[in-house]
Design a protein around this nucleic acid. Structure first.
Length: 169
DNA sequence: ATCGTCATATGAA
DNA sequence: TTCATATGACGAT
């Protein structure tokens, strides 16, 4: 019936206006700038829970940092309940992957004790609703190429470039 | 270098 | 159980 309240807030950056969605547990989704996102109604900041306002401040600073190629100093809590156990393990690994570092789908699978699950890792990355802060753009294919990206490969390239990483073509 | 074809893990229908 | 993946390895061309 009454869903847990979700707040959708615009997040302005030099690269456009992202849309952040907060649940009662923290940041639940981060959407890339798009025409559709622009149209999305965004709550006025007046009757926002103080908690959400502070999370949004952290998220805004963190997203801007990543876009600028700087390591964010503090992340808001991430609400990752929608993920399966395996997906959460993958995302957990990713938040620990420092800016400027990359890994391969297969390496990540092996690190989780599941050699051979490279493809499943790719799927888990695709299910990530919080790009940039859960940095799935730092996961490349074993042949040095880009792999995929739900936000579009142009974004993946752009994010990697901001971190000084250059993938093979 | 590119292309097919398998092998494989996970998750949704 | 069947199908779809943001993979990877291998062999033929």
């Amino acid at each position: 019936m009454s869903q847990p309240v979700h707040h959708r807030l615009g997040l302005a950056t030099s690269a456009g206006r992202f849309v952040a969605t907060y649940s009662g547990l923290g940041l639940a989704a981060l959407d890339f700038p798009s025409a559709r996102a622009k149209a999305a109604p965004v709550a006025g900041t007046k009757d926002l829970p103080a908690e959400v306002r502070s999370w949004h401040a952290l998220a805004t600073a963190a997203v801007r940092a990543v876009l600028a190629g700087r390591e964010p100093d503090e992340l808001p809590p991430l609400d990752v309940r929608h993920g399966t156990e395996f997906q959460q393990q993958v995302w957990e690994c990713l938040v620990r992957l420092r800016l400027g570092k990359t890994c391969h789908y297969g390496e990540l699978a092996a690190a989780l004790g599941r050699p051979g699950a490279a493809r499943a890792v790719g799927s888990a990355c695709g299910a990530n609703r919080i790009p940039l802060l859960i940095p799935c753009h730092r996961v490349l294919a074993a042949n040095g190429r880009l792999g995929g990206f739900s936000g579009g490969l142009a974004w993946k390239r752009r994010l990697l470039a901001a971190e000084g990483i250059r993938a093979a073509r």
